[in-house]
Design a protein around this nucleic acid. Sequence first.
DNA 1: CCTGGTTTCTACAACGTTGTAAGCAACGTT
DNA 2: AACGTTGCTTACAACGTTGTAGAAACCAGG
Lengths: 336, 336
Amino acid sequence: MRHRLKDVAERAGVSVKTVSNVVNGYLHVRPDTRARVEEAIAELNYRPNLSARNLRKGRTGVIALAVPELDIPYFAELARHVVTAAAAHGWTVLIDQTGGGPEQERKVASGIGDHMIDGLIFSPLALTADDLAGLDGMPMVLLGERVDHGPADHVVVDNVAAAQEITAHLIGLGRRRIAAIGSQRTPEGASARLRLAGYTAALDEAGIGYDEKLVAPAPAWHRADGAAAMRHLLAAGVRPDAVFCFNDTLALGALRALHEADLRVPEDVAVAGFDDIEDGRFSIPTLTTVAPDKERIARLAVELLAGRLDGDRDAPPRELTAPHRLATRESTTGRP
Amino acid sequence: MRHRLKDVAERAGVSVKTVSNVVNGYLHVRPDTRARVEEAIAELNYRPNLSARNLRKGRTGVIALAVPELDIPYFAELARHVVTAAAAHGWTVLIDQTGGGPEQERKVASGIGDHMIDGLIFSPLALTADDLAGLDGMPMVLLGERVDHGPADHVVVDNVAAAQEITAHLIGLGRRRIAAIGSQRTPEGASARLRLAGYTAALDEAGIGYDEKLVAPAPAWHRADGAAAMRHLLAAGVRPDAVFCFNDTLALGALRALHEADLRVPEDVAVAGFDDIEDGRFSIPTLTTVAPDKERIARLAVELLAGRLDGDRDAPPRELTAPHRLATRESTTGRP
DNA sequence: CCTGGTTTCTACAACGTTGTAAGCAACGTT
DNA sequence: AACGTTGCTTACAACGTTGTAGAAACCAGG
């Protein structure tokens, strides 16, 4: 059975508001009154009705995190960090899976703002600035690529620089025929475009010509796509001496395909990924990758959101860049 | 700017309740009235205030899924299925990370029921029946091991049978010195106990003696723990010809440790896991494992919960068993 | 004992929604 | 013309909470 302030008040012989004051830690309550109320609360196992509180206060204490897919390790790890960072602000996180499709993302963007939620951290794939317009001033922070000059705050990693660095790392190992896996031409492929740009920039800098045949598309960025793309490259007679995969799951798939083709990593082909997911530290071989500071991304996002909620909602949008580093492991440098 | 029923009503020249009726699809509204209201709704971009609706209706349309850790692939995959299954009932899923500790789980169990949530799907590690008492009749479904005869519905897999089957599979390959990784003595280790029981049952059945030295504990069930346990076994001079790891991440860690010790899988040591996570289909070698039907687990859980919500809340608790199968892959049978 | 200030408590209204009950038309039937 | 029926609409109250404003109790200083 559920009890209300009123029940507690009757039992303690005080007014409803006094109970409310005790619950909310209001200062001026006589110690004996407070004790009586607390006793009644305990006896009835009273817990406040958050719907009512939210209605009254206009705040819910819940923020949403919308990601394309929860069982992509990168997003799962990110989610963990966001939950932790949000907890520090006393927030509960409602995690929403968009599926990554334009339609579903639009629905999340427009539909979630039904007063259930104070703010939104959104990791979009397909969203455009227009879609954001529907949000009606819902405080929001976007992760990843900027949605072309939309009105929202952003937390990004420098994809171009990171991709360039890791490609340069491969070049530095003496590799010259460097394949890239994960290119995408759809509008959802913003990350793909930036990482491809970094890849070509590194080739340019080293005076290596861009060879279209070395660039393999991947419809999604799952292990299966990485394996398929790698098999496809090999079947087409392309013999790269290195592969830069646009994320780690693609890379793990590529590792698998290379293994099946009896090619050694890194001796025959060096492999690098992007994201630094847990799997890559235990794969065989362990995976060289770009390690974005996920903890920082999460913290920055939550802090940006907190700024919006507490402060000026109409301040100009800010963009923060989270740091990244190169994690070199066996898939490029071999076993020590 | 946010609008209310009242604003829409004024704009459309009708009463608040009529707008409410339109929003809720009430039948008896004249077509032209409905059109006027809908126009006003569109113009103002009205969206209902869920806090108010929830307060009025006593239902929130949100259920919680509480799991120990989101970035354990098994739980992430499960979460995806639960979200999908819940969507079919029109529910939003609030995902909660308990961290798996007794303290935190108890907090979730007692604290989440603050009227924010209609029901709870809980995958506990450390929870006891006492902890559940605090829930005050919050409809709940537990996943995994039964919390000793608590009052809640359960969805389980037959851990003992599954562990026995996969151990028998290893025995069937001619292996005799079969190690087990993942045993736990803490109260949280209910799964560990059951899987260990299945393991010993299979040994018994085959007339193989139980050797304590072959059983390695693992404080948690992460890759790092699996690798550490495997290294520990090898360092202790134990030379198993097979390893049954109590989940897949342990197994992936064990694969890694075996690789570092230059042991071949499955030639020298066959390796089997439990959970059938995505990683195991692409690891090198691919991982033989017990594949619980996660989609079914999620669906059953959601349906049990739906039954509680719509039906008799005081019906006796039910326990449903989700099917599992054996997925034999390279880590035991080698490359084809 | 009064004054003014502080502490402690309370009554009331409001947050935005929907269920209830009732009102008002318009209709067909007697 | 009176009636019941049906379709459409509305006023009101209530869900459980908290902010506001003010009342009551208390205290210290004259």
